[in-house]
Write a protein that binds this DNA or RNA. Structure first.
Lengths: 195, 195
DNA sequence: AAAGATAGGTTAACAGTGTTAAGTAGATAG
DNA sequence: CTATCTACTTAACACTGTTAACCTATCTTT
């Protein structure tokens, strides 16, 4: 196996086991039985390594999302399913979620296109679903792509509050998630205001 | 002025000017004309210093929110005003926002109650407004306190996506904010489904 | 085959980090 | 006048990311 791959593997498992904060170049190197400087032969710096991990996690999340909607159901159902899958992914694999959405490689180049192809595809898939729902009069949105990002941002907000331990201890986590999900979805549904 | 206060002031301006990443104990100490170890006489460690800054920023945010709804308007109007104020605070003072919602003091004790009194008050105020809206049939929510946290989480999601530069470059920031705000608020509004 | 370039690794070092242990000058108290 | 306490200091430890310089085996070119 190439050293590059090995570095990626050990850093990923280190990330998952110990969390992002305890990942250091030297520890990664030690785990791969190699000197710390060797990492720099394969990655420009720590941020680039992080981006590579990110790319991979994004691909996995994108796949989980794609798989969860296997064609059947109407737009609304699909939206709910996607929201569920997203929340489950985030809460079951918090460390991986973290590097996708919470870690900030310093001065992260604004959306380096190539690295974010996968997640862009997800947004576009989502936008398509929203558009479908709009045409069927089920959803009430303005710009579908913007709506896709909005939905995602809202879900991220929910996850973020939980993962960063900012949720009031008086509130049960599951109840919070359920209610939040309902409320978010409801924001997309066409209002049937009686004339 | 007490050294404790001076340390807080220096670190706050350092935080605002250079950002969280470039804040170090030694730099703070140098800016306060004191040795690095002196900080430890006033704060247990860096996290405690961070928490103190956090506490302060939270108080400011809480005040901005309280001030923005000066009694008049119905529940829905108040909700919109609060959302506006929150978003403005976050986007105008990103560094301060960051320490409130994004920085994670390692192993942050789950909501150390005393330090979060202010923000809890805000949530309760928000819950009251939501309850008021429910009683007037304007809002459709289950548990008002949970809804308060949900609203906040959603808004945080929007801010978070922008501040961590994860927003698609094709999407105009202002458009995103406006549409997101509308969608979030709509999630709270009573659906008038015709029978 | 000899010579040179290259790929892939090394060790040593720099400049920085949070944090602790031990020591010190000055005010205060008995 | 001595002892204690307070607020600070210097020195040091054990880390961090990163770079410079060096080594060695393999591949390419003459």
């Amino acid at each position: 196996m190439s050293l590059r791959k090995e570095i990626l593997e050990v850093s990923r498992s280190m990330l998952i086991e110990k969390g992002f904060g305890k990942m250091s170049m030297r520890k990664i190197a030690a785990a791969a039985n190699v000197s710390a400087t060797s990492i720099y032969l394969h990655f420009k710096n720590k941020d680039e390594l992080l981006l590579a991990l990110m790319e991979d996690s994004i691909a996995q999340l994108a796949e989980a999302l794609s798989n969860s909607i296997n064609g059947n159901g109407d737009a609304l159902y699909k939206l709910e399913t996607l929201a569920d899958t997203f929340l489950r992914f985030a809460l079951e694999r918090p460390q991986e979620y973290e590097i996708i959405y919470m870690v900030r490689p310093e001065e992260m180049p604004k959306f380096p296109k190539d690295k974010f192809q996968h997640i862009r595809k997800v947004y576009e898939m989502l936008a398509d679903i929203i558009e479908e729902g709009r045409q069927q009069g089920q959803l009430d949105v303005d710009d579908p792509l913007v709506s896709a990002y909005t939905l995602w941002a809202q879900l991220h907000g929910i996850v973020s509050v939980i993962l960063s331990r900012r949720l009031d201890t008086r509130i049960a986590r599951d109840k919070f998630i359920e209610q939040a999900k309902d409320q978010i979805i409801q924001g997309f549904i066409t209002q049937k205001t009686p004339v």
